[in-house]
Design a protein around this nucleic acid. Structure first.
Lengths: 164, 164
DNA sequence: CTTATGTCAGGGATACTGACATGT
DNA sequence: CACATGTCAGTAACCCTGACATAA
């Protein structure tokens, strides 16, 4: 019985799963830690999704929820919290009286700029730490992975019980 | 006012965030969909973490929770559910009378093999869809990214309000 | 007894569905 | 009224902390 911390069946496939799944957590953690250290204390992980999809001149709630691939109700609550914290405001849409726009306040723009700046720095450090490849190549590869996962033509997965 | 689905400030930094964060969801979704289509219907997303860390000859609950970076209580509940579904069983640890081992049943081994097989197929398809790079290079790059995010020497992040 | 292991109870953070309110 | 937008209420899935039970 192995009882180390080394994961089970540590072959290439499992390593791929772990690395891809881990990357999200690492990058999210880094951004959140940076912003909190920069004084945006009350920010929670879920709030990042709002700023990642927010236009500087305002965005409809529905558009935000679509971009973040979540329900408008869930996005609505995140927005309320950020309005309460003074980072966002809701204004009438000048082009459609029926709806409103979620727009960053001055503080929200500061947060947006600070976050982007950190991600840019992260990317630069990442680029420098890469020997034989470029970040652009890696991002291209991740795009290709998404395509492969969606198409998912692993042929027909044989059903259980009657496979041979 | 822009009102398209194109995310805000779609520059390189934001694209990087979106791609890295999206990759996890895509790969998880692909594995889960495949396994469910293969007849493992009742599987939930969280259950994958168990199999990703399970040795074929059994693993302590505590070890599983450490590998998955979660509490042993949370892992314990996932294991209970998988035992109920017939994929896992709990046996006495032959080397330590105090503890038990979580071990895949025959059905669990079938699931394990099927999942691994799919991930291998995914990796092969990904490799073929890559032009100028290899999967190994991308995985190396993701390892480097994790390191960059943890070290996080973005220098001291200037605090708010007193920056200029 | 001390310690490792595992279970039970309660709760927090996240995001969903369904029902409803509002304004054009 | 019909429709798009947005809010309210309840709930599901997931994981956490604290307290406790068990056995070596």
């Amino acid at each position: 019985v192995t009882d180390t911390l080394e994961p089970a069946g540590a072959d290439d496939a499992m390593a791929m799963i772990r690395l891809v799944k881990g990357a999200k957590g690492h990058i999210e953690g880094s951004v959140l830690r940076y912003l909190r250290a920069a004084g945006f204390d009350a920010l929670r992980l879920a709030h990042l999704q709002v700023f990642e999809n927010l236009d500087r001149d305002g965005t409809h709630l529905t558009t935000l929820s679509e971009r973040a691939a979540m329900s408008h109700q869930a996005m609505g609550e995140l927005v309320v919290e950020l309005v309460d914290q003074g980072y966002l405001e809701r204004i009438a849409d000048p082009e459609d009286g029926r709806s409103r726009l979620v727009r960053p306040t001055a503080a929200g723009l500061a947060l947006l700029d600070r976050g982007r700046q950190h991600v840019v720095a992260l990317r630069e450090q990442w680029e420098r730490s890469l020997g034989d490849a470029t970040v652009a190549q890696v991002l291209e590869a991740l795009t290709a992975l998404a395509r492969v996962c969606e198409v998912d033509s692993s042929a027909d997965p044989p059903r259980r019980g009657r496979s041979r």
